[in-house]
Design a protein around this nucleic acid. Structure first.
Lengths: 237, 237
DNA sequence: CCCTCTGTTTGAACACGTTCAACTAAGCCC
DNA sequence: GGGCTTAGTTGAACGTGTTCAAACAGAGGG
């Protein structure tokens, strides 16, 4: 389709300008934070006009999101290395969570802004929105890989819901991390170290006879909820 | 102290102006939503100047928060009635949660904006911040009253953590509610109906011998975390 | 060589939230 | 009554994110 024989200079130039703007934005975000950075400042440093910045990025928020996207892919890479090394679920889960907060560390300053926009249900950046489905899928898939590790004794129905549940757990950790002002993010590290064994223990308890029926009812409800989410309540289309 | 014999006209006038501005803001928020409402529009409808609106309200966000504060006190009232009637924990918890989403219903349109600002750790409106401690305290106290109901069999250490845990649970429900676009908020109602019995069941299981040690470790950690939060990491002062 | 089309670039303009120095009004003390 | 203080009020001005009509650039066709 796209013939490399004809190098379309235009597209290339566009991509270069785009990259220059993003880079200028990242620099300024780091230097002055989100609010301290202006679109005019970004355009100036990139050597383009104000309007041009908007030609490539619909808004200032999009700019910071593109910036943050790097962290997501970095995390996938780091998590990959963890999963290749660790065989026990507990170590796998802890590793995935720790790499998450470690790769996100450079963005901690902006996590407030990011989370702010993510919390708005209208925003396409909400973690529950259609647009962010791909990265959510990637994260739950990571959790699927995590629970392939040794040391997990569970029923098939709970196992099916586990990736989503662990994703929610991860979101909770991130929420804590955002508010964590301790040195070296120590508190979040402790939180992970302490809760990961508990989580695994609780999951393993789910197959106990006493709890079995409770687990079954809970998973049934979760499945119901999840399926209902998949099909949006569009009357006819 | 405040002698009613000397009616300080000033204060009264100020309060009236303040009320007029807030009312105008509420009207406009309802008519056009948050983004569709401008500070100039609010000032116009209130019959005051733009600067005057800022004399009484530090920002547009504060205006919407004052608006929302009504919902909080309404909820305390409604919850009071529920707690006076219902004796069983399950009914009490369900009642408190249902009245929460019902009293919040008029504000559902703005919940995105509210939550947005609440999510920012820098914001004094973050549910974890110092400033919002009073309302958080009120909510956890409500949960203390909830668990005074019949049908709860738990250990003292878990019981001590329960109000905070149930508050977190309520936050989760609210997060779901914010994103709930179903008619009559049906999905959130189902969520409450289904999860309340599960939550109570799980709490009651906490005193089972098999789980006892797990519960003890979890509550110990929670207490530790809570106490560490109370004392901010200020080195010397 | 001119025309056209499309991707790119510009800077003025807009609307908004917020700030501020200045002003008014009203009670208080001597 | 004459200053003094404080609460209340004003509107212009600032800086911001965002939009937009217009201009530009360069490739391709006639």
């Amino acid at each position: 389709m796209t013939s490399p024989a004809v190098p379309r200079k235009r597209t290339d130039k566009g991509a270069q300008t785009r990259a220059r703007i993003l880079e200028a934005a990242i620099e300024l975000f780091r230097e002055r934070g989100y609010d301290g950075t202006t679109m005019r400042g970004i355009a100036d440093r990139a050597g383009v006009s104000l309007g041009n910045a908007y030609y490539y990025f619909k808004s200032k928020e999009v700019l910071v999101q593109d910036f943050y996207r790097r962290s997501h892919t970095e995390h996938l890479d780091s998590a990959e290395r963890v999963l290749a090394t660790e065989t026990h679920v507990e170590a796998r889960l802890r590793g995935v969570l720790l790499t998450k907060i470690e790769t996100s560390e450079p963005y901690h300053r902006f996590s407030g802004v990011l989370f702010k926009t993510a919390a708005d249900p209208e925003s396409p950046l909400s973690p529950f929105s259609e647009e962010s489905a791909p990265s959510r899928r990637e994260s739950t898939r990571l959790m699927e890989r995590v629970i392939e590790g040794k040391g997990l004794r569970t029923t098939p129905d709970l196992r099916a819901e586990l990736p989503d549940l662990l994703w929610t757990y991860q979101m909770g950790i991130i929420l804590f991390w955002i508010h964590d002002r301790s040195e070296g993010r120590k508190r979040t590290r402790i939180l992970i170290d302490r809760t990961v064994p508990l989580v695994i223990r609780i999951v393993n308890l789910g197959s106990l006879p006493v709890i079995r029926t409770l687990t079954r009812r809970a998973t049934a409800f979760l499945r119901e909820l999840r399926d209902a989410r998949e099909i949006p309540p569009t009357p006819a289309d």
